[in-house]
């Protein structure tokens, strides 16, 4: 009955995290996003923020609500219900998003050293990275940052020991077993192998992020001149 055994753990006095013990997987993420949608629908006056992550769902309570102080029975009931129907649940339609990336050169200064260190050509590294379909487990960290699953283990690379002070917006990086794009200028410890001219996050769009959790992402290589002319009409 308990497909995904869980524990409820306090996340401060106005938050709660539902921790799942199952390993990270696409199926678990689908379940967590479904649970988040149900929580949003059922407890909208008590819960203001829902943060799905790899193996957890965090709830941030409304400070005006006394609900957080009461028992969590209702929540546990909803978790059980969602688990029972986990196979038949439907989520919002998902999409496949193609993201152009100019690999290497000035936009991806760490591509060459990384290829050399892995004894690969830059082109084969690019091919391997861009031929994979990645899965969006969640968004978080910074506005529009995607936590992607699917990086080929042969491309994994320990984080830099000294993080760069400033990574440009749109930079595509690899850090440990993860790959992803810095949506805004920020400090960062990942190896930067390329950059996209697309804005991953634009507050004028609805939704503001170009992907949602559970979407798929593929990167495709573009040239430096394509990159430079991307946003000129």
């Amino acid at each position: 009955m308990n497909r995904y055994p869980y524990r409820l753990v306090d996340n401060g006095d106005m938050g709660l995290t539902i921790l799942f013990e199952a390993p990270i997987s696409r199926a678990l993420s689908i379940y967590i996003v479904q649970l988040a949608e149900r929580c949003r629908a059922r407890f909208s006056q008590h819960i203001v923020d829902l943060i799905p992550a790899y193996q957890s769902l965090t709830l941030g309570f409304n400070l005006d609500s006394e609900w957080a102080a009461t028992q969590t029975f209702e929540l546990e009931q909803l978790i059980e219900e969602t688990q029972l129907s986990a196979d038949s649940l439907s989520t919002k339609p998902t999409k496949r998003v193609e993201i152009p990336v100019c690999y290497g050169g000035e936009y991806g200064p760490d591509l060459a050293p990384m290829a050399q260190q892995k004894n690969m050509t830059q082109q084969s590294l690019i091919n391997q990275h861009s031929q994979t379909e990645y899965f969006v487990h969640m968004l978080g960290f910074a506005p529009g940052f995607m936590y992607l699953g699917g990086l080929d283990p042969s491309l994994a690379c320990p984080r830099k020991s000294v993080p760069a002070m400033q990574v440009p917006a749109g930079s595509l990086g690899i850090g440990a077993g993860q790959t992803g794009i810095y949506p805004q200028v920020s400090p960062g410890g990942w190896h930067i192998i390329g950059r996209t001219p697309l804005a991953l996050f634009d507050v004028n769009n609805t939704p503001a992020c170009i992907v949602n959790p559970l979407d798929s992402v593929r990167f495709y290589p573009i040239s430096a001149s394509e990159f430079e002319n991307w946003n000129t009409p």
Partner: peptide, 29 residues
């Protein structure tokens, strides 16, 4: 640990052992 939702006021202990308290603009995960 598995990255998860981070709320305002969370006190994280990075490998250096010195606490970081999340502020209102803190990262969400």
């Amino acid at each position: 640990i598995s990255s998860s939702g981070l709320l305002n006021g969370s006190i994280q202990i990075p490998p250096g052992g010195l606490p970081i308290i999340s502020g209102v603009d803190g990262q969400t995960i």
